[in-house]
Design a protein around this nucleic acid. Structure first.
Lengths: 198, 198
DNA sequence: CAATCTATAGAACATATTGTTGCATAACAG
DNA sequence: CTGTTATGCAACAATATGTTCTATAGATTG
């Protein structure tokens, strides 16, 4: 029975991933190679190849690490605007100030040609959608929104704009923008309530 | 005086770019190299290096070609909803069915590490913003919207969501989605008119 | 047309990246 | 203590990315 893994495996993995993430943040995807991680950790190149047979394997591991590091717990105390401002503020901080912000563009980049990277980004986004959905659902339960309102398009708008500004348009994410954005989403949620039912 | 360029230069450039774009669409960025373009055109590798000294130079040239191919002329006859549905329909078609749709993710990808690619995507997006802005401005002139309405956030929402769905979330762009999206943007434009002034 | 540039083709060379393999050594598990 | 397994090291191979040189074909100018 192998309930416990060889401690050497664990040590190699954790050290290598840590170094890979550091390289990823500081010098970009291209700087993450078996050779560079080897140099940074002292782990031999051949060992790294044994753990991650290809470059994409190695890099996607660093991607996953970056994607799981930010803390995205939603608050659902209400009112809607407060909760939305909170979760989008967390997203803003994550994009501006954490590893994920530096790494996300590179994951999107890799996702264009690599399925592992695509799965990293897609599952990350699914979690983000869920965070926002919880908030809308809580607003429904409090009676702030009608229960049959279709919130999916609202969720996408809430999350799409910050990513678009950061990744595609090269525009900044600051407090002013956030306030306007939250106002618009709330405006839309309440005004659309009269028309947008599913 | 050199008002006319050597026809050999022009021939080389046009053939190489055409081949590069084809490779870009069919096999992805990674397939665009001096060697592959040489094989496809018969132009010698050394000549290609003379025209585009680095891989990025070569690829960005193909990017620019893809970015200028779709036709994005805005219609501003009104009403707002009709014009918006038109321009976003053009964008939908471009992302689903043209070279740009296949290439855009790879340009975004490259933009993460390459400034030329960043400039390609940023100027492309600036043009898209302008298309939508014309439509809102026309609506203002017709009196459909108050003249002091701040349309920038609306423009960003209109354009951000399709790109986000395509590039980041891996969601489809279809007619149903388009209709909902246009409705929401119009809803927001008119309802926000009471609150969102600049 | 002749003389002179200029772009291209082709091949040889250089270097870095991305792995692969075999073997000795060190660490672990029972 | 004994077999098993992960690691370290060095050598090797294939490919990608350029560079440089020379001969030739094509363009331009007078």
């Amino acid at each position: 029975m192998n309930t416990h893994e060889d401690p050497r495996l664990i040590a190699t993995r954790t050290q290598a991933i840590e170094a890979a993430l550091k390289l990823l943040r500081e010098k970009g995807v291209l700087a993450v190679t078996h050779a560079s991680v080897s140099a940074k950790t002292g782990i031999s190149r051949s060992t790294l190849y044994r753990h991650w047979p290809t470059l994409n394997d190695l890099r996607n591991n660093a991607f996953r690490q970056a994607a799981t590091s930010p803390d995205f717990a939603a608050r659902t105390n209400g009112p809607l605007k407060t909760d939305l401002a909170w979760i989008l503020g967390v997203l803003l901080t994550a994009l501006n100030d954490t590893a994920w912000g530096q790494v996300a563009p590179q994951v999107i980049a890799a996702a264009a040609t690599d399925d592992q990277a695509k799965s990293v980004i897609n599952s990350f986004m699914a979690d983000r959608f869920e965070n926002v959905r919880e908030i809308f659902n809580a607003a429904k339960e409090r009676g702030e929104l009608p229960t049959d309102l279709d919130v999916q398009p609202l969720i996408e708008m809430a999350v799409a704009v910050p990513y678009f500004r950061k990744l595609v348009a090269g525009l900044p994410l600051d407090a002013d923008w956030l306030e306007t954005h939250v106002d618009l989403i709330c405006e839309l949620a309440t005004s659309a309530s009269t028309t947008m039912r599913r």
